[in-house]
Amino acid sequence: MKTIGVIGGMSWESSTEYYRLLNRHAKARLGGHHNARSLMLTVDFAPIEANQRAGNWTALGDQLADAARQLERGGADLVILATNTMHRVYESIEQAIDVPFLHIADPTGNALRAAGITRVGLLGTRYTMEQTFYTGRLSERYDLETLIPNEAERADVHRIIYDELCHGNVNDASRAVYQRVIDELAARGAQAVILGCTEITLLIKPEDSALPVFDTTALHAQAAVDWAIEPV
């Protein structure tokens, strides 16, 4: 098995989910006592979050490129970034390393197309929902129409991620907020919903949603393990 390098810590709450899912999928694929061979570099989220708010994406790209180089020097054969939002700077990471980089939107795009979905709702941070680095990739590579919540709903979704989920706080009232947002996306014609922030998996499970759920965290981890076992 190849070694998966994970840039984590954004937040560490979702990075623990990555570690669990990587190993669970490796065991499902290989059986016995198998784990996923992995390295994780956990960054300090506080300066990253501050640079996000300041719109300093150049500095963020430099920091994550350095993290990727550290993983490659440590023996990673593949690098993944355990956050949707910071794929805003994925090109900086790809250019910094010689090993492959697995973009988080690609396993989700492939799964949606395989399911026959053409119009999908997207939940994530304000950056992921409002900027084009994510929705544009889904459109250009997978011919997907992406619907995002209205402005007030986007504010609620973003606030719950940063003020609650990033701190490990999972609240029923916030789950109800997300469920109402999903219902609105369904009313506008969404056939499914992307959990486009790696923390949302802590709050919304398939049984909580009126729409089929495509969890980027789970899909990304599974694709990384599949590549590590049978690189393509």
Rank of each mutant, 00 (worst) to 15 (best):
P100S: 06
D44W: 09
A186K: 14
T216S: 15
L202D: 07
G9K: 00
G9S: 01
D208A: 13
M40L: 13
E164F: 05
V89P: 03
R154M: 15
I104E: 01
T132I: 14
E199H: 06
R29A: 15
Y19G: 12
E91K: 07
S209M: 06
E199T: 06
H220R: 03
T198G: 00
L202V: 07
L71I: 05
T118E: 13
I229N: 11
E130F: 11
I229P: 08
A186V: 04
T135R: 15
R137G: 03
E151C: 08
A221Q: 04
D62Q: 14
L211K: 11
L71Q: 08
N84A: 00
R53P: 04
R126E: 15
V120M: 02
I80S: 02
Y134M: 07
A54R: 15
A67W: 00
V99I: 13
G124M: 05
I104T: 03
L112M: 03
H158E: 07
L185F: 03
T135S: 15
D208N: 14
D172Q: 15
G55V: 03
V232N: 12
L39M: 10
A65R: 08
A223L: 00
G61A: 01
L30Y: 10
L203M: 05
Y178P: 02
V170S: 07
L41A: 12
D77A: 00
V43N: 13
S14D: 05
G116N: 02
M86E: 09
G121W: 01
T42P: 12
L41G: 12
R53W: 04
L112S: 09
V181Y: 10
D226Y: 06
L81Q: 00
F214N: 01
T217D: 05
L64E: 12
T83E: 07
L112T: 02
K27A: 14
I229W: 11
C197I: 04
I104W: 00
L21Y: 14
L81C: 07
R29N: 08
M40K: 06
E230K: 14
R20M: 10
I4N: 04
E91F: 01
E13Q: 13
A65M: 10
P47G: 10
A228G: 07
V99N: 00
Y90K: 07
T16I: 14
A111N: 03
N171G: 05
M129V: 10
M10Q: 09
Y142W: 08
A218K: 13
T3Y: 00
D215L: 06
R126M: 10
H103S: 00
G121L: 01
F133P: 08
R180Q: 15
S14R: 04
N23C: 11
A28E: 15
A218I: 13
L21W: 12
A67T: 02
L211N: 12
L147D: 04
E17Y: 11
C166N: 13
M10P: 09
A114S: 14
A36D: 09
V225C: 02
R159M: 04
G9T: 02
H167D: 10
S139D: 12
T198Q: 01
R119E: 05
P107D: 00
E72A: 02
I93S: 01
T201G: 14
